[in-house]
Design a protein around this nucleic acid. Structure first.
Lengths: 158, 158
DNA sequence: GGCCATTTAGTTGTGTGCAATTTAATTGTG
DNA sequence: CACAATTAAATTGCACACAACTAAATGGCC
């Protein structure tokens, strides 16, 4: 075997691409790892925690609205919500007004869990080593990126 | 400082937390969506593309090393590599020196696919709307974050 | 009122991610 | 050399994501 790989890597675009998507992918999973450890106490997975955050803020929402907040569809949410229901944190009830819709609402237990969740953000912040302003700046950058990527995805589909 | 009884929480840390993890999670999945569209031509998923990027750069390496580059373990890589092998892009062979190890190497077809992949980074860059320097700055920030999160995860596991 | 397109959840199938376990090979130690 | 500890892959089980599809309910439109 020759020691030199296929192509000259100096201005290697694939290598650059590697860096970009690796970084985001790795950061996302590293974040997931930290949340996994911290959320184990609460009996929640990271995506379940995200759902609970939305419910703690809004109290009660149809699956559709929940999905809009989280950019997730029913294919992901339906089984996840079933697990939260089995855990006794939420109830799912067909809306009386529109029987296509399913209202998701917190149980007393689900509301109570919020108290224990209040410590989570501080621990996450500690793990990042970033301060509030740095986090905010990064967040704005990421939202900008997400917006650009979403519109690009839509344009690419016709 | 007494807190408001019911809904209105302190400085709403949970809401802030929501913003942070939502943003990273959303950006990661938005990125995945763009890659999914672009990579469909090549017959690769996004994680498979990441594996191919490493192989295009290094030519051949054991599963262990591949996992270190991608921070993935054999539980993820084994089935993924089987699919790449079925697709005819890689071969997996037990190392003669150390029979515990499995060497992953590109087939001719796998090497050839690199040519078609060369267009991917440009299309991704276009979709982001960011220029090289912005991407690089974001990447450095994310790597910093990942490093902090990883060491925090390790410290928490004694 | 009757019919059809749309909307909303749910289901199915594929592909990760990761923890935990298993199997086989290698290494370290007495 | 024997044998326990370690290491590398693979396997198993669970939980997302997401595309594609199904089923039920609603809303328009004539």
């Amino acid at each position: 075997m020759t020691t030199t790989p296929a192509a000259a890597p100096t201005t290697d675009w694939l290598r650059l691409d590697q860096q970009i998507c690796f970084s985001l992918n790795a950061a996302s999973r590293a974040f997931g790892g930290v949340y996994r450890v911290i959320l184990k106490d609460l009996g929640l997975t990271y995506p379940q925690y995200l759902v609970m955050l939305v419910l703690w803020e809004h109290g009660e929402l149809p699956v559709k609205k929940l999905g809009e907040h989280l950019r997730l569809d029913s294919g992901t949410l339906s089984p996840l919500l079933k697990r939260l229901e089995t855990a006794g944190l939420v109830r799912r009830e067909r809306s009386a007004r529109d029987e296509r819709s399913v209202e998701v609402r917190l149980t007393d237990e689900g509301v109570a869990l919020r108290e224990r969740a209040l410590q989570v953000p501080r621990r996450i912040m500690g793990a990042t080593g970033f301060d509030i302003d740095e986090i905010r700046a990064l967040r704005e950058r990421l939202d900008e990126l997400t917006g650009a990527l979403d519109s690009a995805t839509l344009e690419q589909q016709p």
